[in-house]
């Protein structure tokens, strides 16, 4: 026993030492051996971004961004990414509902197919789109013969390529939200006379809105950064299909690293804004319930 005097001074006052003992520190579960590689990895992730900031031609930045070609690429990027997100919402939410609530054989297979674009190298996705929708493609050829309409190397092709790559992000987010959504409310709606469609619109959809929003933001960010599939399927034609990522690549290839860096900075700031808007969702995913 090595109690200090304070414990004995007047049991009635019941006051412990004025300065409370240090709060107990729980031992962290991180093995010391992993700390060094973790720090190294972190530097690896951060230094390129710092490099971008350091080498950025800050003084020329306004001029660079004011150039017609840059403004054009930026506007097209924003437009196509938004259209791709809209398409993903219109097609992806129904897919998510089928995956989450459908009862049919081969649902696992469908889910696997849906996630293929996530792991597929984007350039392969672009080639695949070409074989399907290209002028000599499986669907593209009869379509072209019949209507004279051809998709590749148009702005719409950019949207298609971006949708192909980005929609799985939305589907996965929405399906997760649907699985977390409370079927008890759907039941209650049914006993109140709601058809499944009515219940979906007025009960389920409002419930999964945070998940839909998060999925849409992810989808949009992925579409905005899309390069491989877009370049393969839509090319990088100035004034038609040139979007920010392909513009960055083009500027670098043409020996204008300053412009490439400026464009990269723009894309990076958009990413940071997206990340900030998602932060709330990632940190407390259950709070919106």
């Amino acid at each position: 026993m090595s109690t200090t005097g304070t414990d004995h001074v007047g049991a009635g006052s019941a006051k412990r030492a004025a300065r409370p003992p240090r709060p107990p520190r729980e031992r962290s579960g991180v093995p010391p051996l992993l700390v060094a590689p973790a720090a190294l990895g972190l530097m690896f992730l951060i230094i390129p971004l710092i490099g971008l900031m350091v080498r950025a031609p800050w003084t020329e930045l306004p001029d660079q961004l004011g150039r017609e070609i840059v403004r054009d690429a930026l506007m097209r990027s924003l437009y196509t990414a938004s259209m791709a997100t809209l398409t993903s919402l219109l097609l992806g939410i129904p897919i998510a509902v089928v995956l989450a609530h459908g009862r049919f054989r081969g649902r696992g297979l469908v889910r696997a197919l849906v996630t293929v674009p996530l792991v597929l190298p984007p350039v392969v996705g672009g080639v695949a789109l070409f074989t399907a929708l290209g002028r000599k493609g499986v669907i593209g050829e009869p379509l072209h013969d019949w209507t004279g309409w051809s998709l590749p190397f148009t702005t719409n092709a950019v949207i298609v390529a971006e949708t192909f790559v980005a929609m799985p992000f939305l589907i996965i987010a929405v399906e997760g939200a649907l699985r977390g959504a409370d079927s008890r409310f759907t039941e209650a709606a049914a006993t109140l006379g709601a058809t499944r469609w009515y219940a979906f619109r007025r009960v389920t959809l409002p419930q999964i809105m945070p998940g839909v929003a998060a999925g849409a933001v992810l989808c949009w960010a992925r579409a905005l950064g899309e390069f491989g599939a877009t370049v393969t399927f839509a090319g990088s034609l100035e004034g038609r299909t040139l979007v920010m990522p392909s513009a960055v690549y083009r500027e670098l290839e043409a020996g204008r690293p300053g412009t490439a860096i400026s464009l990269s900075l723009v894309l990076m700031s958009i990413s940071v804004i997206v990340l900030a808007s998602l932060r709330e969702h990632w940190i407390s995913p259950a709070r919106t319930r």
């Binding site: 008890r184 409310f185 049914a190 006993t191 109140l192 006379g193 007025r202």
Partner: peptide
């Protein structure tokens, strides 16, 4: 269910949030 003239008060109420 949606065609039945049945009203339910659920134990957990299930009011649409």
């Amino acid at each position: 269910p949606e065609k039945r003239p049945v009203g339910v008060v659920w134990q957990d109420y299930r009011l649409f949030p």
